[in-house]
Design a protein around this nucleic acid. Sequence first.
DNA 1: GCTTCCAGTTCTATTTTAGAACCAGTTTCG
DNA 2: CGAAACTGGTTCTAAAATAGAACTGGAAGC
Lengths: 161, 161
Amino acid sequence: MKRRSFREAECPVARTLDAIGDWWSLLIVRDAFDGIRRFSAFQQNLGIAKGILSTRLRDLVEAGVLSLAPASDGSAYQEYVLTEKGRGLFLVIVALRQWGEDHLFRAGERRSMLVDAATETPVDRLKLHASDGRGLTWEDTRIVDAASCAPKGSPSPPKSA
Amino acid sequence: MKRRSFREAECPVARTLDAIGDWWSLLIVRDAFDGIRRFSAFQQNLGIAKGILSTRLRDLVEAGVLSLAPASDGSAYQEYVLTEKGRGLFLVIVALRQWGEDHLFRAGERRSMLVDAATETPVDRLKLHASDGRGLTWEDTRIVDAASCAPKGSPSPPKSA
DNA sequence: GCTTCCAGTTCTATTTTAGAACCAGTTTCG
DNA sequence: CGAAACTGGTTCTAAAATAGAACTGGAAGC
């Protein structure tokens, strides 16, 4: 009765959710983007049980999203910091944020906001584009099998690995 | 011992995850984007227990992400279709997909691909821009409280709601 | 009208989570 | 230095969620 795994799914969305799609992981990652690094800081900020946090952090480190580094304040403790792979989740967080802003707030309700630090102005909306720059909506797209759609530099035909 | 709720969180990311952040919801939404509409089709495609699927679909309908519509094939059954709100999750799915493509596949491994239907070429990567069009990375951004960052047409000061 | 399919609901067993208690190593500080 | 408090966990129990199978009532197929 184990939870189904999509680690080997053909769909990248499924693999991503398999890796970080549980209830707490993305919240932890969001906190990491907000500068939180210490176990107790995550725990207090999220109100998560320590046992769960412990396994989630371990899983995220195992997944290569976070890594353990010596504390920046010189103490003997360690900190959890985003790896390059973890920082790659930024647009996932932004996409979640923009959807929430659009659909989950009543008018005038207090909310945090993502701004361009240089100008303090809100960032632009994410948009999807074709390779030639045209804007795309869901209706303009299709899912195909990679084998049938080799990109320019066709790295290698899917023979073994 | 209820699961903590972020329905009233100030952070849009937290609200979004509260609404659709559990293990199955985004997979169901992904399937919906792929054209799946019937209970049994979701069930077979995901390998999810029927009981869970039942509550997940009910929750998604309640959240306004899916709606029930009479079956398009003329039968007496009903179908689950994405609402406008649900279609708004497209970029979330795309962001998850691109991260998975980048970090969760070995070279040459078979994977599905999102293409521009018109040209059959892979879509562009999502990118974040400032309001003036400059590309932004995480390091270029900050989270601020909405009240301290009123946008141009300052809709209304956060007085009541 | 009998059988099969569809879309669930209900049931039990297993797994996961929450929350509190506990603990070893660290830091504080008197 | 030694006691007290803090940090980062682990362990324990109880509650909740999930998996999987069995069951059900209406719709379709024949």
